[in-house]
Amino acid sequence: MKPFLFGLLVIGLLAWAPLVLNDYGTGLLLGLTGYATLATAWAMFSGPTRYVSLATVAFFGIGAYTVAVLSETLPYPLVLVVAALIGLSVSLVVGLATLRLAGVYFVIFSFGLAELVRQTVTWYEVNVTGTLGRYIFLPLEARHIYWQLLALLVLTLLIGIYMRKSRIWLALVAVGDDEVAARHAGVDVTRTKLALFALSATIITLVGAIQAPRWTYVEPTIVFNPTISFLTLVMALLGGAGKLWGPIVGAIPLFLLFEWLSANFPNHYSIILGGIFILIVFAVPNGILARLETLGQRRKGEAQ
Protein backbone atom coordinates (compact mmCIF):
# COMPACT_ATOMS: atom_id res chain seq x y z
CA MET A 1 0.00 0.00 0.00
CA LYS A 2 2.77 2.42 0.93
CA PRO A 3 4.55 2.53 -2.44
CA PHE A 4 1.17 2.91 -4.10
CA LEU A 5 0.29 5.98 -2.00
CA PHE A 6 3.77 7.38 -2.52
CA GLY A 7 3.40 6.91 -6.24
CA LEU A 8 0.06 8.70 -6.26
CA LEU A 9 1.58 11.58 -4.30
CA VAL A 10 4.46 11.94 -6.77
CA ILE A 11 2.12 11.81 -9.77
CA GLY A 12 -0.13 14.39 -8.09
CA LEU A 13 2.79 16.73 -7.46
CA LEU A 14 4.04 16.34 -11.02
CA ALA A 15 0.58 16.97 -12.43
CA TRP A 16 0.20 20.09 -10.27
CA ALA A 17 3.64 21.48 -11.15
CA PRO A 18 2.74 23.35 -14.40
CA LEU A 19 0.12 25.36 -12.51
CA VAL A 20 2.86 27.05 -10.49
CA LEU A 21 5.79 26.89 -12.89
CA ASN A 22 6.49 29.54 -15.50
CA ASP A 23 6.49 28.75 -19.22
CA TYR A 24 10.15 27.84 -19.28
CA GLY A 25 9.78 25.47 -16.34
CA THR A 26 6.76 23.78 -17.87
CA GLY A 27 8.55 23.43 -21.18
CA LEU A 28 11.53 21.84 -19.45
CA LEU A 29 9.30 19.42 -17.56
CA LEU A 30 7.48 18.58 -20.77
CA GLY A 31 10.68 17.79 -22.63
CA LEU A 32 11.98 15.73 -19.75
CA THR A 33 8.76 13.73 -19.48
CA GLY A 34 8.86 13.11 -23.22
CA TYR A 35 12.37 11.70 -23.07
CA ALA A 36 11.68 9.74 -19.89
CA THR A 37 8.78 8.06 -21.70
CA LEU A 38 10.83 7.43 -24.83
CA ALA A 39 13.70 5.91 -22.86
CA THR A 40 11.39 3.76 -20.72
CA ALA A 41 9.51 2.51 -23.77
CA TRP A 42 12.78 1.85 -25.60
CA ALA A 43 14.15 -0.16 -22.67
CA MET A 44 10.95 -2.18 -22.41
CA PHE A 45 12.03 -4.11 -25.50
CA SER A 46 15.74 -3.47 -25.91
CA GLY A 47 16.66 -3.85 -22.22
CA PRO A 48 15.85 -7.51 -21.66
CA THR A 49 16.31 -8.76 -25.24
CA ARG A 50 19.48 -6.72 -25.95
CA TYR A 51 18.22 -5.98 -29.43
CA VAL A 52 19.54 -2.44 -29.77
CA SER A 53 16.92 -0.45 -31.65
CA LEU A 54 18.15 2.70 -33.39
CA ALA A 55 14.72 3.34 -34.87
CA THR A 56 13.23 5.46 -32.07
CA VAL A 57 12.93 8.58 -34.21
CA ALA A 58 11.34 6.63 -37.06
CA PHE A 59 8.33 5.91 -34.85
CA PHE A 60 8.46 9.23 -33.05
CA GLY A 61 8.40 10.96 -36.43
CA ILE A 62 5.58 8.79 -37.73
CA GLY A 63 3.52 9.85 -34.73
CA ALA A 64 4.32 13.54 -35.14
CA TYR A 65 3.73 13.52 -38.86
CA THR A 66 0.40 11.73 -38.56
CA VAL A 67 -0.80 14.50 -36.28
CA ALA A 68 0.47 17.12 -38.71
CA VAL A 69 -1.40 15.50 -41.59
CA LEU A 70 -4.65 14.62 -39.83
CA SER A 71 -5.10 17.32 -37.17
CA GLU A 72 -7.47 19.36 -39.32
CA THR A 73 -9.60 16.51 -40.63
CA LEU A 74 -10.12 14.30 -37.56
CA PRO A 75 -10.91 14.99 -33.90
CA TYR A 76 -7.74 15.01 -31.79
CA PRO A 77 -8.29 11.79 -29.79
CA LEU A 78 -9.00 9.93 -33.02
CA VAL A 79 -5.80 11.34 -34.52
CA LEU A 80 -3.85 9.81 -31.63
CA VAL A 81 -5.52 6.45 -32.19
CA VAL A 82 -4.70 6.53 -35.90
CA ALA A 83 -1.08 7.49 -35.12
CA ALA A 84 -0.78 4.59 -32.69
CA LEU A 85 -2.23 2.20 -35.27
CA ILE A 86 0.19 3.36 -37.96
CA GLY A 87 3.12 2.98 -35.56
CA LEU A 88 1.89 -0.47 -34.62
CA SER A 89 1.56 -1.60 -38.24
CA VAL A 90 4.99 -0.32 -39.26
CA SER A 91 6.60 -1.96 -36.24
CA LEU A 92 4.89 -5.26 -37.01
CA VAL A 93 6.13 -5.23 -40.61
CA VAL A 94 9.67 -4.25 -39.61
CA GLY A 95 9.67 -6.70 -36.73
CA LEU A 96 8.37 -9.61 -38.80
CA ALA A 97 11.04 -9.00 -41.40
CA THR A 98 14.02 -8.54 -39.12
CA LEU A 99 13.40 -10.04 -35.68
CA ARG A 100 13.65 -13.62 -36.89
CA LEU A 101 17.24 -12.95 -37.90
CA ALA A 102 20.36 -12.34 -35.86
CA GLY A 103 20.34 -9.22 -33.69
CA VAL A 104 22.83 -7.36 -35.85
CA TYR A 105 20.48 -7.32 -38.86
CA PHE A 106 17.84 -5.78 -36.69
CA VAL A 107 20.24 -3.08 -35.48
CA ILE A 108 21.29 -2.23 -39.01
CA PHE A 109 17.77 -2.14 -40.32
CA SER A 110 16.56 0.00 -37.45
CA PHE A 111 19.54 2.30 -38.00
CA GLY A 112 18.39 3.13 -41.52
CA LEU A 113 14.66 2.97 -40.88
CA ALA A 114 14.37 6.62 -39.86
CA GLU A 115 16.15 7.74 -43.00
CA LEU A 116 13.94 5.48 -45.10
CA VAL A 117 10.73 6.75 -43.55
CA ARG A 118 11.93 10.34 -43.83
CA GLN A 119 12.78 9.99 -47.52
CA THR A 120 9.54 8.16 -48.24
CA VAL A 121 7.47 10.82 -46.46
CA THR A 122 9.37 13.55 -48.29
CA TRP A 123 8.81 11.80 -51.60
CA TYR A 124 5.11 11.40 -50.84
CA GLU A 125 4.69 15.03 -49.83
CA VAL A 126 6.54 16.37 -52.85
CA ASN A 127 4.99 14.08 -55.44
CA VAL A 128 1.51 13.34 -54.14
CA THR A 129 0.42 16.25 -51.99
CA GLY A 130 2.77 18.78 -53.53
CA THR A 131 3.75 20.40 -50.24
CA LEU A 132 6.69 19.95 -47.93
CA GLY A 133 6.04 21.12 -44.40
CA ARG A 134 2.75 21.52 -42.58
CA TYR A 135 1.29 23.69 -39.87
CA ILE A 136 -0.36 22.27 -36.80
CA PHE A 137 -3.04 24.45 -35.28
CA LEU A 138 -4.37 22.70 -32.23
CA PRO A 139 -5.71 24.51 -29.17
CA LEU A 140 -3.23 22.77 -26.87
CA GLU A 141 -0.98 24.62 -24.45
CA ALA A 142 2.29 23.30 -23.10
CA ARG A 143 0.68 22.06 -19.89
CA HIS A 144 -1.96 20.10 -21.79
CA ILE A 145 0.75 18.35 -23.74
CA TYR A 146 2.68 17.77 -20.55
CA TRP A 147 -0.28 16.17 -18.81
CA GLN A 148 -0.81 13.79 -21.70
CA LEU A 149 2.86 12.84 -21.67
CA LEU A 150 2.76 12.33 -17.92
CA ALA A 151 -0.24 10.05 -18.29
CA LEU A 152 1.57 8.09 -20.99
CA LEU A 153 4.68 7.81 -18.83
CA VAL A 154 2.64 6.51 -15.88
CA LEU A 155 0.92 4.04 -18.18
CA THR A 156 4.27 2.89 -19.59
CA LEU A 157 5.65 2.41 -16.07
CA LEU A 158 2.55 0.48 -15.02
CA ILE A 159 2.97 -1.80 -18.02
CA GLY A 160 6.61 -2.21 -17.01
CA ILE A 161 5.68 -3.12 -13.44
CA TYR A 162 3.04 -5.55 -14.61
CA MET A 163 5.41 -7.14 -17.14
CA ARG A 164 8.06 -7.75 -14.53
CA LYS A 165 5.56 -9.75 -12.50
CA SER A 166 4.37 -11.82 -15.42
CA ARG A 167 6.00 -14.67 -17.30
CA ILE A 168 6.69 -12.55 -20.37
CA TRP A 169 9.58 -10.81 -18.60
CA LEU A 170 11.21 -14.13 -17.89
CA ALA A 171 10.80 -15.03 -21.56
CA LEU A 172 12.29 -11.71 -22.71
CA VAL A 173 15.36 -12.02 -20.50
CA ALA A 174 15.75 -15.62 -21.61
CA VAL A 175 15.62 -14.49 -25.24
CA GLY A 176 18.36 -11.96 -24.49
CA ASP A 177 20.49 -14.66 -22.85
CA ASP A 178 20.03 -17.66 -25.11
CA GLU A 179 17.30 -17.93 -27.71
CA VAL A 180 17.84 -21.65 -28.24
CA ALA A 181 17.37 -22.49 -24.58
CA ALA A 182 14.29 -20.27 -24.44
CA ARG A 183 12.78 -21.93 -27.49
CA HIS A 184 13.24 -25.44 -26.14
CA ALA A 185 11.69 -24.38 -22.85
CA GLY A 186 8.54 -23.63 -24.85
CA VAL A 187 8.91 -19.89 -25.49
CA ASP A 188 7.64 -18.68 -28.86
CA VAL A 189 10.70 -16.49 -29.31
CA THR A 190 9.67 -14.67 -32.48
CA ARG A 191 6.22 -13.80 -31.24
CA THR A 192 7.52 -12.62 -27.87
CA LYS A 193 10.07 -10.31 -29.50
CA LEU A 194 7.56 -9.05 -32.03
CA ALA A 195 4.91 -8.30 -29.40
CA LEU A 196 7.29 -6.33 -27.22
CA PHE A 197 8.88 -4.48 -30.11
CA ALA A 198 5.43 -3.47 -31.34
CA LEU A 199 4.32 -2.36 -27.87
CA SER A 200 7.46 -0.30 -27.38
CA ALA A 201 7.21 1.23 -30.86
CA THR A 202 3.56 2.13 -30.37
CA ILE A 203 4.31 4.01 -27.16
CA ILE A 204 7.16 5.82 -28.92
CA THR A 205 4.82 6.73 -31.76
CA LEU A 206 2.37 8.17 -29.25
CA VAL A 207 5.09 10.32 -27.66
CA GLY A 208 5.75 11.80 -31.10
CA ALA A 209 2.07 12.34 -31.73
CA ILE A 210 1.45 14.02 -28.39
CA GLN A 211 4.50 16.26 -28.67
CA ALA A 212 3.79 17.30 -32.26
CA PRO A 213 1.63 20.35 -31.42
CA ARG A 214 4.69 21.84 -29.66
CA TRP A 215 6.06 22.59 -33.09
CA THR A 216 3.53 24.66 -34.96
CA TYR A 217 5.43 23.96 -38.15
CA VAL A 218 6.47 20.42 -39.04
CA GLU A 219 8.57 19.02 -41.85
CA PRO A 220 10.37 15.70 -42.27
CA THR A 221 13.83 16.97 -41.31
CA ILE A 222 12.45 18.34 -38.03
CA VAL A 223 10.51 15.31 -36.80
CA PHE A 224 12.93 12.69 -38.12
CA ASN A 225 15.96 14.17 -36.39
CA PRO A 226 18.33 11.25 -35.59
CA THR A 227 19.45 12.98 -32.38
CA ILE A 228 16.20 11.80 -30.79
CA SER A 229 17.10 8.12 -31.34
CA PHE A 230 20.54 8.85 -30.04
CA LEU A 231 19.47 10.64 -26.85
CA THR A 232 16.87 8.00 -26.01
CA LEU A 233 19.48 5.29 -26.30
CA VAL A 234 22.05 7.19 -24.24
CA MET A 235 19.58 7.89 -21.45
CA ALA A 236 18.38 4.31 -21.20
CA LEU A 237 21.93 2.98 -21.25
CA LEU A 238 23.20 5.46 -18.69
CA GLY A 239 20.45 4.59 -16.23
CA GLY A 240 20.44 0.90 -17.05
CA ALA A 241 18.14 -0.52 -19.70
CA GLY A 242 17.40 -3.69 -17.74
CA LYS A 243 15.84 -1.87 -14.78
CA LEU A 244 12.37 -0.37 -14.60
CA TRP A 245 13.59 2.96 -13.22
CA GLY A 246 16.93 2.92 -15.06
CA PRO A 247 15.85 4.91 -18.13
CA ILE A 248 14.28 7.64 -15.98
CA VAL A 249 17.34 7.80 -13.73
CA GLY A 250 19.39 8.27 -16.90
CA ALA A 251 16.98 10.70 -18.53
CA ILE A 252 16.91 13.33 -15.77
CA PRO A 253 20.61 14.30 -15.59
CA LEU A 254 21.21 13.84 -19.30
CA PHE A 255 18.19 15.85 -20.40
CA LEU A 256 19.21 18.75 -18.16
CA LEU A 257 22.81 18.48 -19.37
CA PHE A 258 21.71 18.47 -23.02
CA GLU A 259 19.45 21.45 -22.46
CA TRP A 260 22.33 23.34 -20.93
CA LEU A 261 24.74 22.27 -23.66
CA SER A 262 22.41 23.22 -26.51
CA ALA A 263 21.86 26.62 -24.91
CA ASN A 264 25.53 27.30 -24.25
CA PHE A 265 27.38 25.38 -26.95
CA PRO A 266 24.93 25.23 -29.85
CA ASN A 267 27.72 24.65 -32.37
CA HIS A 268 29.65 21.99 -30.52
CA TYR A 269 26.59 20.25 -29.11
CA SER A 270 26.85 17.13 -31.23
CA ILE A 271 30.57 16.69 -30.60
CA ILE A 272 30.17 16.85 -26.83
CA LEU A 273 27.15 14.58 -27.02
CA GLY A 274 29.02 11.92 -28.95
CA GLY A 275 31.97 12.18 -26.58
CA ILE A 276 29.75 11.74 -23.52
CA PHE A 277 28.11 8.75 -25.12
CA ILE A 278 31.42 7.00 -25.82
CA LEU A 279 32.39 7.63 -22.20
CA ILE A 280 29.13 6.07 -21.00
CA VAL A 281 29.69 2.96 -23.12
CA PHE A 282 33.12 2.66 -21.53
CA ALA A 283 32.46 3.60 -17.95
CA VAL A 284 29.01 2.20 -17.20
CA PRO A 285 28.31 -0.72 -19.52
CA ASN A 286 25.31 -1.87 -17.48
CA GLY A 287 24.01 1.53 -16.44
CA ILE A 288 24.15 3.63 -13.29
CA LEU A 289 21.57 1.60 -11.37
CA ALA A 290 23.45 -1.66 -11.82
CA ARG A 291 26.67 0.13 -10.91
CA LEU A 292 25.04 1.53 -7.74
CA GLU A 293 23.76 -1.91 -6.84
CA THR A 294 27.16 -3.55 -7.16
CA LEU A 295 28.65 -0.71 -5.11
CA GLY A 296 25.93 -1.24 -2.49
CA GLN A 297 26.61 -4.95 -2.38
CA ARG A 298 30.31 -4.36 -2.02
CA ARG A 299 29.69 -2.01 0.87
CA LYS A 300 27.38 -4.52 2.51
CA GLY A 301 30.06 -7.15 1.98
CA GLU A 302 32.66 -4.96 3.63
CA ALA A 303 30.42 -4.26 6.59
CA GLN A 304 29.87 -7.93 7.30
Partner: peptide
Protein backbone atom coordinates in the same frame (compact mmCIF):
# COMPACT_ATOMS: atom_id res chain seq x y z
CA UNK B 1 31.75 -11.64 -30.24
CA UNK B 2 28.14 -10.74 -29.50
CA UNK B 3 29.11 -8.46 -26.65
CA UNK B 4 31.75 -6.87 -28.87
CA UNK B 5 29.19 -6.33 -31.59
CA UNK B 6 26.87 -4.43 -29.26
CA UNK B 7 29.70 -2.47 -27.65
CA UNK B 8 31.18 -1.48 -31.00
CA UNK B 9 27.80 -0.47 -32.38
CA UNK B 10 27.24 1.80 -29.39
CA UNK B 11 30.72 3.30 -29.32
CA UNK B 12 30.77 4.02 -33.05
CA UNK B 13 27.26 5.45 -32.80
CA UNK B 14 28.80 8.02 -30.44
CA UNK B 15 31.73 8.51 -32.79
CA UNK B 16 29.28 9.23 -35.62
CA UNK B 17 27.97 12.25 -33.74
CA UNK B 18 31.49 13.46 -32.94
CA UNK B 19 32.65 13.32 -36.57
CA UNK B 20 29.42 14.86 -37.80
CA UNK B 21 29.69 17.61 -35.18
CA UNK B 22 33.26 18.45 -36.20
CA UNK B 23 32.31 18.57 -39.88
CA UNK B 24 29.33 20.76 -39.07
CA UNK B 25 31.51 23.25 -37.20
Amino acid sequence: SEALEVDSILATFGLLFVIQGVLLV
